[in-house]
């Protein structure tokens, strides 16, 4: 039975969100693909995008081949997908430790013979599964749109590209978890994690046009996910590994902080 483990209970807690986000993202993906022939291939779109000032392009995401379905999906879905998933990741990961500590339920769980690292790892594993399911739903939505829009694209690439956003989101989840373990306040940790996520997004986008920011962009997890390249060539192994290592380090640091925390009942 699902409830007999921490992983299972976390999955159960997240199931409503997974269904909600999943349906929403699938529908969004579907609509974007259906819109592609009329919007993406509309005469003059490429020229219009081209005429945008560089800063504007950086903000909405500069995509070279907007008139191809890959470019269109990269711009309209893959650029936003990690940010949408990040909202859920931040809400969950700040709840794992800080939220449960504030509600007092952490006391109950840690009165059981459970190692603290195990609690964190099981909950992060459940979050990963939920995020994969949500990303997959977006991919399936896109795929279902292909025959309606009458465009050709490898379904494997589509699914792989949406799923490839998950390591990036896991880094943001790791930041949220660490902030929660340090601050033991869900609200504060959520604010900081969301602020950092937006700042990292902007840092990476603006680094394309602001020369001085370029050396710093490697600090942004968004630097390691190129939507267009991912959807045309498949996920970049080195980048994906970098993100996973980053997430792993953040979770490790969270555990170290959490081990030393006093757990109060309220």
């Amino acid at each position: 039975m699902l409830l007999r483990t921490i992983l299972g209970k976390s999955l159960r807690d997240e199931r409503a969100a997974v269904i909600g986000y999943g349906l929403g993202l699938a529908l969004y993906g579907l609509l974007i693909v259906i819109m592609f022939p009329s919007v993406g291939q509309a005469p003059g779109l490429a020229e219009m995008m081209e005429s945008y000032p560089p800063a504007m392009k950086a903000l909405v995401g500069e995509i070279k081949a907007i008139t191809t379905v890959e470019g269109f999906v990269a711009l309209e879905v893959l650029t936003w997908l990690p940010l949408i998933l990040a909202i859920f990741a931040i809400m969950s990961a700040t709840d794992f430790v800080a939220g449960e500590a504030e509600r007092g339920t952490l006391y109950l769980v840690l009165s059981q013979p459970v190692r603290r690292w195990r609690l964190v790892v099981e909950r992060m594993a459940a979050l990963t599964v939920s995020l994969l399911a949500m990303a997959l739903a977006a991919g399936i939505g896109l795929w279902l749109g292909l025959p309606i829009a009458k465009v050709e694209m490898s379904p494997a690439n589509l699914i792989a590209a949406t799923v490839a956003t998950v390591p990036l989101v896991l880094v943001i989840a790791g930041i949220s978890l660490l902030a929660g373990c340090i601050l033991m306040s869900r609200r504060l940790a959520g604010l900081i994690a969301a602020g950092l996520a937006v700042a990292f997004y902007l840092l990476n986008s603006l680094a394309g046009v602001v020369e001085q920011l370029k050396p710093w962009s490697r600090l942004s997890p968004f630097h390691y996910f190129d939507a267009y390249k991912t959807i045309t060539n498949g996920p970049d192994l080195a980048d994906t590994l970098t993100l996973l290592v980053g997430a792993f380090v953040l979770v490790g640091a969270s555990v170290l902080v959490f081990q030393r925390r006093d757990i109060l009942a309220d």
Partner: peptide, 29 residues
Amino acid sequence: KRMVGNLPGELSLYGGLTGNQLLVHLDGV
């Protein structure tokens, strides 16, 4: 903790679960 059962002074339980579900969860854990 394997050898101890603890009732905290300020008890917080998972409000979304039923009593049965909570006991199943803790039993499993």
